[in-house]
Amino acid sequence: MAIAGATIATLFFAVPLLGLLWRAPWSSAWEQLTNHETLVALRLSLETSLAATALAVVFGVPLAWVQARVAYPGRRLVRALTTLPMVLPPVVGGIALFLAFGRLGLVGQYLDKVGVHLPFHVPGAIAAELFVSMPFLVLVVEAAFRSADQRLEDAARTLGASRFSVFRRVALPSIRPALVAGAVLCWARALGEFGATITFAGNLQGKTQTLPLFVYVTLERGELAAAIVPSLLLLVISVAVLVSLRDRWLSAL
């Protein structure tokens, strides 16, 4: 029974991948991959996902540290809030971003006055990716901070290290592997982001049309073959991420 179930589950994951490979236009794959539109989308995807990851590290690591180390009223609420995008349909996230940072949004109306526009601009695509991907980094890094020996930080303080110094010289180095893993996960999620991006940032080549949007639009045009090649590219990247994480984590267990 168990083996039958396991086999079905495995096939359920394996067969769609086979489907992609089966219909891939291998003879024209290189042209498909290097045509102008694909390259523009790929480049934009790399730029926005890396920018989102960098922002996630800059803001997410302090958040993770505070969540793991500082007991304050409302901490659970903040945790729920900051992990919500992981279970929220991205399209809902996109609408929410609109209502917050859109031109008439809660904050957006003031941003608009100082000339900051997120929707239909590259920063909008980055914001959408950041919204859905940062929780991954925060969760992994927070778990690492949580299980890191807090007494090491106590020891550092008795040696004269300020809270900031403890964070920078002790806490951060001790969770470096988790930080790398969290950043990679975050980046992979940002790279694959679709729903929030198309909802919030729109769809414009070179501005907000990231690779997943490009795949979708291409498919909508009925150009199945042209959609498969960038799909395979995303697949290869995903597999590479999983393999790199496995080496980083499982080998140390």
């Binding site: 007494r151 090491l152 106590d154 020891a155 303080r157 008795t158 040696l159 004269g160 290290a161 300020s162």
Partner: peptide
């Protein structure tokens, strides 16, 4: 706070970085 007390502590299980 501990960082401004100049009190050195040797911990039981060392707690080396």
């Amino acid at each position: 706070p501990p960082e401004r007390r100049a009190i050195g502590v040797v911990f039981q299980d060392y707690l080396l970085f």
